[in-house]
């Protein structure tokens, strides 16, 4: 087995140790894992941490999605989108909302590497492509 695949295997194990009862990455659990690694540093500490980060990032979209909106007051939209995402994915998702003025109006929802967008910015971009 090559070194990189060993590291990958260990990182996956660390991810498993970081999950709470609900199958979500728990902050306390991650802290404990990191503390333990700091106390007993492995030979490829930095590479292992990077791989661990990659595994965590890949795991988070299983229950977390990011929402960007053009305005602050979008609580209705947030709840509607959360409901729709939960229904379509058959899971309990949490929405991480943020502000993005570039959108002008509308929203951009990111679940893992899938992006759903309905904004003025995107429409203008489509128009520009059609005309160019």
């Amino acid at each position: 087995m090559s070194n990189s695949s060993k590291i990958k295997k260990v990182a996956k194990k660390l991810l498993e140790l970081s999950l709470d009862d609900q199958g979500r990455v728990g902050v306390d659990k991650v802290k404990a894992v990191l503390d333990s690694l700091r106390e007993n540093p492995p030979s490829d500490h930095r590479t292992l941490l990077r791989e661990f980060l990659f595994q965590v990032r890949r795991y988070l979209p299983n229950y977390q999605c990011e929402l960007e909106t053009a305005n602050d007051a979008q609580s209705d939209l947030n709840s509607v989108l959360t409901e729709k995402v939960n229904a379509s994915k058959e899971a309990d998702y949490t929405l991480d909302a943020s502000l993005n003025k570039v959108l002008i109006a509308g929203y951009k929802l990111r679940i893992g590497d899938d992006v759903y967008e309905d904004s003025i910015h995107q429409r203008l971009e489509n128009l520009r492509r059609t005309l160019s």
Binding site: D114, V115, L127
Partner: peptide
């Protein structure tokens, strides 16, 4: 011409896969 182009544009949200 531009108005027609705007009207023909889809208003549905687009789904893309990004990296």
């Amino acid at each position: 011409l531009i108005r027609k182009e705007i009207e023909s544009l889809s208003t549905d949200p687009t789904k893309t896969n990004v990296g």
